[in-house]
Design a protein around this nucleic acid. Structure first.
Length: 225
DNA sequence: GCGACAG
DNA sequence: ATCTTGTCGC
């Protein structure tokens, strides 16, 4: 694997790496039976000059949504936060957390975009490519694209349009809460991704896997658990 | 040049 | 992303 996929020296190299990776992204289903679901998220401290990051991956039983295991990694990001380049900041720590999981999830939902990204390389796609794993992007706000206003009911959805193409779906999982933005990460179709997000909705704004990962990353950062 | 800009 | 208590509503 090209080292620039994880640690580019600068923004120009990072952009080249994304363009190279984009050729390998798979937007059709290529996944086996999903018995374990994963959620991935990274917590940080605002304006931290040390660039500390706390990455967590939570594993849930796909049938019951009950927690199975968690793994975390506390590290230093080699990349600053730059919109459009989140993967270079978060993926290395997530890979470290992943390696620590005894039983790997069959599908992982990542906090952030998949191909709903200027170069189709959001953090969810990035992680999927590096680990050769089916991933779904579940973001809380748009990076690119536009969606019409959604009715204020659970289940309301609308395509995310960008440059004349559907790059994802906006989906409201809870009334009076902002929608989540779902897109293909890697090795999964938008339809299948959407079905999994709906299936893991538990009455909150975020689906269960992402929610569990967010909680785990927060606990890790605060030194709990 | 100006505005937008996941986490 | 995070700073932060109580408060309103299901």
């Amino acid at each position: 694997m090209d080292p620039d996929w994880l640690q580019p020296d600068n923004l120009a190299a990072a952009r080249r790496a994304q363009e190279a990776m984009a050729a390998s992204v798979e937007t059709e289903d290529r996944l086996g039976p999903v018995r374990r679901l994963g959620g991935a998220d990274v917590s940080t401290t605002r304006f931290d000059p040390e660039r500390r990051v706390w990455a967590a991956i939570a594993t849930l039983d796909a049938a019951t949504l009950l927690p199975l295991a968690e793994a975390g990694e506390a590290g230093i990001a080699r990349f600053p936060y730059v919109p459009g380049f989140l993967g270079f900041r978060e993926v290395p720590a997530l890979v470290a957390a992943w390696s620590r999981l005894p039983e790997k999830p069959d599908l992982v939902m990542v906090d952030g975009h998949g191909i709903a990204h200027p170069r189709r390389l959001g953090v969810a796609t990035h992680l999927g490519l590096v680990l050769d794993l089916p991933t779904i992007g579940v973001a809380k706000s748009l990076l690119v694209g536009e969606v019409p206003d959604l009715p204020d009911i659970a289940g309301a959805e609308a395509p995310i349009l960008w440059r004349g193409a559907v790059i994802g779906v906006a989906l409201r999982l809870r009334p009076r809460a902002n929608p989540v933005y779902v897109s293909t990460g890697h090795r999964i179709s938008l339809a299948t991704a959407l079905a999994w997000v709906k299936r893991t909705a538990t009455g909150h704004r975020l689906p269960a896997p992402t929610r569990a990962a967010h909680a785990a990353a927060g606990r890790l950062r605060r030194g709990e658990g």
